[in-house]
């Protein structure tokens, strides 16, 4: 009681007991919040028969098995191991290309005076908000005519273009906060615009570049709609695209689907865990515009 008294924060929240209760309630809610994740994970490491009979939450009986994972990864129709590989083949270039391209544009936006900049800026914001549905039909036929339909390259180009507006926006904000004196010093030393950009701005902006890359990678990995519309060949499908096809027509096979879900969300979760700082600052930059 005495100890609690000393650790309490003043003013906003009442007695020590109330604080204890509030803490417990918060943690109960927190755990409840991720119960679906726990459930899907438990289901994925148990034989589905056992889950159906006893539920995923039982500790006994508990038979540990990786069968669901093997079934999902090496599914004869939609092999998720192939899907993961395809997702990487799509997501990595779809991150590198737009970040590179958008960094140049963003620098231009941050530093060059353009008479129509205000309108371009508003256009970029508009493009960030347009639904994918608004562009996909012409893209579909354009890809078809260019023989890009059902190819990695086609999807990569679409994702890259789609990522440019928000990355430009994000990096523009980042660049405009960098100290302009360093750039001016470099200019006085005789560097060209591009040299200033390469040698001064980019190195200073590495945290921002990482944030943008991390978010764009996760975004492309998680995307479903573009892949659904542009890739048909089961050998080229990305993992999010394969996943709903594991569902089964009449009976949902949660054994397969749970392991598939875990596999599909692993990459973004790892990116989130390992690049947390960058992920969150990119995320806030994406939404908050600061």
């Amino acid at each position: 009681m005495k100890k609690l008294f000393k650790y309490r924060r003043t003013g906003l929240i009442g007695s020590p007991y109330k604080i204890l209760v509030l803490n417990i309630v918060a943690w109960v809610i927190g755990v409840l919040w991720i119960t679906p994740f726990i459930g899907i994970f438990m289901t994925s490491i148990k034989p589905f028969r056992e889950v159906v009979l006893h539920g995923w939450w039982t500790i006994s009986p508990f038979t540990f098995t990786l069968k669901n994972y093997v079934d999902a990864l090496f599914n004869p129709m939609f092999s998720l191991s192939r899907g993961i590989l395809n997702s990487f083949i799509i997501a990595i270039p779809s991150t590198v290309i737009p970040v590179t391209v958008a960094a140049l544009t963003a620098y231009g936006f941050a530093r060059f005076s353009l008479p129509i900049k205000k309108y371009l800026f508003a256009t970029i914001l508009f493009l960030m908000a347009v639904p994918q549905q608004m562009t996909i039909i012409p893209i579909f036929f354009l890809s078809k005519n260019l023989s890009l339909l059902n190819t990695y390259l086609g999807l990569i180009l679409v994702h890259s273009s789609w990522g440019i507006p928000w990355i430009t926006f994000f990096l523009r904000n980042y660049f405009s906060l960098l100290p302009v004196e360093l750039e001016e010093a470099a200019r006085v030393d005789g560097a060209t615009d591009f040299q200033v950009f390469r040698k001064v701005v980019l190195p200073l902006a590495i945290p921002g570049i990482i944030s943008a890359s991390v978010l764009q990678f996760a975004w492309v990995w998680n995307d479903f709609f573009f892949a659904l519309m542009l890739i048909f060949d089961p050998d080229k499908m990305v993992v999010t695209q394969m996943l709903p096809r594991l569902k089964g027509q009449y009976q949902v096979d949660w054994g397969l689907l749970s392991s598939g879900s875990v596999i599909a969300m692993l990459a973004p979760l790892l990116v989130y865990a390992f690049f947390n700082k960058y992920y969150m600052s990119g995320f806030r930059g994406w939404a908050m515009k600061r």
């Binding site: 996943l243 969300m265 973004p268 979760l269």
Partner: peptide, 13 residues
């Protein structure tokens, strides 16, 4: 963080 497709499946679940 997770793909929204997985999100949909988790809701179903």
């Amino acid at each position: 963080v997770i793909p929204m497709i997985v999100g949909g499946l988790l809701i179903l679940f």
